[in-house]
Amino acid sequence: MTPVHLPRVWQWRVSGHLPEAARHAPVLDAAEHARLGALRAEADRDRYLVAHVALRRVLGERLGLAPAAVRIVRRPCTDCGGPHGRPVVAGDTGTHFSLSHAGDLVAVAVAEVAVGVDVEEVPPPDVVAATAPTVLHPEELRELAALPEAARPAAFARCWTRKEACLKALGTGLNTPPATVRVGTGLRAVALPGRHQADVPTLPGYAAAVATHEAVTDDQGKGCT
């Protein structure tokens, strides 16, 4: 039996950790500083700073390195060959990570196998009505339609974070049409072959999920994200 490699997940509130992240901003590398500077909205810059400082500190502790010494690179994309495939720790095949942020929340997951984490704010009903038909599996659409209208936003967010986490762990991201992946909208996720997933307790008004994939080849880790 293939062992289940359980991930560790950390969460931070952007508003609560921004001052500390600002003090540790020098740990970011040149590419991260450039991307941070290119973000036009202050809220986007704040989320990026907290997320990437937190990621470096988590990885540094795991690897026994100073956060600034962690080298994060991207594998080539199998779709276009560009340098924006799965982010990985340079030279370390035993440490896999995933990063997500939304609203006032940042999450990082680390595992011994390919891992994906996703956090989302629970959307308003009109966004659910407009988005669900394009991203949910037909069975998930039926599940959603059977719920009281007031329960649909939370169910949609639960389903969406599961999908994103699974597709991040697989390495394809949204290059795999989300509607082709069934994870379910209910309190128990639909099991997927070769993957392990779980909803993650989080802040009110948010949903979060994590997934691992036990057998990812090099090619599977290079899709556009």
Rank of each mutant, 00 (worst) to 15 (best):
V4I: 12
L6V: 14
P7T: 00
V9E: 06
H17S: 12
L18S: 06
P19H: 03
E20G: 11
R23I: 05
H24I: 00
A30C: 10
E32G: 11
E32P: 07
E32I: 07
L36W: 11
G37S: 04
G37Q: 03
L39N: 04
R47V: 01
V53T: 02
A54K: 10
A54L: 11
R56E: 01
R57N: 12
R57W: 10
V58K: 09
V58W: 05
R62E: 09
L65A: 09
P67G: 00
A68C: 07
R74I: 15
C77N: 03
H84A: 13
H84I: 12
R86F: 06
P87R: 03
V88I: 12
V88Q: 09
G91Q: 06
T93Q: 13
G94A: 15
T95S: 11
T95H: 08
H96E: 11
F97M: 04
F97S: 01
S98H: 05
S98C: 00
S100I: 05
H101D: 13
H101S: 08
D104T: 03
L105V: 09
V106Q: 09
E112G: 08
D118A: 04
E121D: 03
P123S: 09
P124Q: 08
V128G: 07
V135Q: 10
L136W: 07
H137M: 07
E139F: 07
L141Q: 11
E143Q: 08
E143I: 06
A145N: 05
A145M: 02
A146C: 07
A150Y: 02
A150D: 09
A154V: 13
A155Q: 03
A157S: 10
R162Y: 03
C166H: 13
L167G: 04
A169W: 00
L170W: 12
G173D: 01
N175F: 05
P177M: 05
R182K: 05
G184C: 04
L192S: 08
L192T: 01
P193L: 12
H196Q: 10
A198N: 10
A198G: 09
D199S: 09
P201W: 01
P201D: 01
P204W: 11
P204L: 14
A207M: 03
H213R: 11
V216T: 12
D218E: 14
D218G: 13
G221S: 10
G223Y: 06
C224W: 05
T225S: 13
